[in-house]
Amino acid sequence: MLTATADPVLSLSQAVAGDQTAFAGIVREHQAMVYSIGWHFLRDRAMAEEMAQDVFLHLYRNLGSIESARHLTHWLRKVATHRCIDQARRRKLVRWSDLEHVREPVAAESGRDPMLAGLLARLVAGLPPKPRMMVILRYQEDLEPAEIADLLEIPLGTVKSGLHRALALLRSKMEKETVQ
């Protein structure tokens, strides 16, 4: 049984030295974040797990370049995000929802329903790759638009408008789905 080391910096230095147990601890600590980015983006358990596996194997080869625990989290998010988007580019057969004709949301709506979580997750998976990743980073990882812009390497304004349009589309689709 592999056990994690409590101190992330110590774990990092041990993993760099080739300690398999320390590396397993790092993986265990961040696996939910990396896997969930893949799961919400790809909606395929095997693909998400394989993406997460590849991200951690890539990390192992680049452990020497990681400077801190914070840098590690940022590095993992960035690599996972870009791998997902690259994978989506390769799967061009999937039809995305068209965001161009969606207006930005103007009004709030009440009525929280936890049963809609599954439906919402499916609707998020139907968004085009970049807005989909923006929504995942905003609501799974709780990142600010500026952090999302940094991760996706796009302007802040693009992230803000992308998020607004994505939310508007999700809201209208959810309304249609719940009415039917």
Binding site: Y35, S110, L120, L167
Partner: peptide
């Protein structure tokens, strides 16, 4: 409210 629902839908999951 809608954003709360999104946060709920986007909760983290564990791999196998």
């Amino acid at each position: 409210e809608f954003e709360d629902q999104l946060r709920e839908a986007m909760h983290r999951r564990e791999p196998g």
